[in-house]
């Protein structure tokens, strides 16, 4: 990779990551939290691909594929839990889940 500086790639990935994180923190809707998590993971993918192309290694892409696996697994569990929550609480508001504290 010649023309795109690594620095800028990392900045882009950080930006996306922060946006995702803000989404996870700020949104009350669990579905949006899961989506924001996807944004975060995606941002990590950007960083890995960028780094891989800087070092001219395939490792970055391998890591991206592994992250893809993780994202799939996470979404599966997350959505299943979401359905469970919808059934149980009739709401997706994450703030409903605060029985345990102290």
């Amino acid at each position: 990779m010649t023309s795109i500086p690594l620095f800028h790639v990392l900045i882009l990935s950080s930006l996306l990551f922060v946006i995702g994180f803000i989404g996870v923190v700020a949104r009350k809707n669990t579905l949006f939290m899961l989506m924001s998590l996807e944004v975060m993971l995606n941002a990590v993918g950007v960083a890995f691909i960028g780094a891989g192309s800087v070092w001219q290694q395939a490792d970055g892409q391998v890591m991206f594929i592994l992250i893809l696996t993780l994202a799939a697994a996470e979404v599966a569990v997350g959505l299943a839990l979401l359905i469970r929550m919808q059934k149980k609480y009739r709401s997706l508001d994450i703030d409903a889940l605060n029985q345990m504290k102290g």
């Binding site: 990779m1 795109i4 790639v9 882009l12 996306l16 944004v39 995606n42 993918g45 950007v46 691909i49 960028g50 891989g52 192309s53 970055g60 892409q61 991206f64 594929i65």
Partner: peptide, 17 residues
């Protein structure tokens, strides 16, 4: 967003990704 990121990947020399 994902599509845009895919374009980025392509531009970074990772068409497979």
């Amino acid at each position: 967003s994902l599509l845009a990121v895919a374009v980025c990947f392509y531009l970074m020399g990772a068409p497979f990704a």
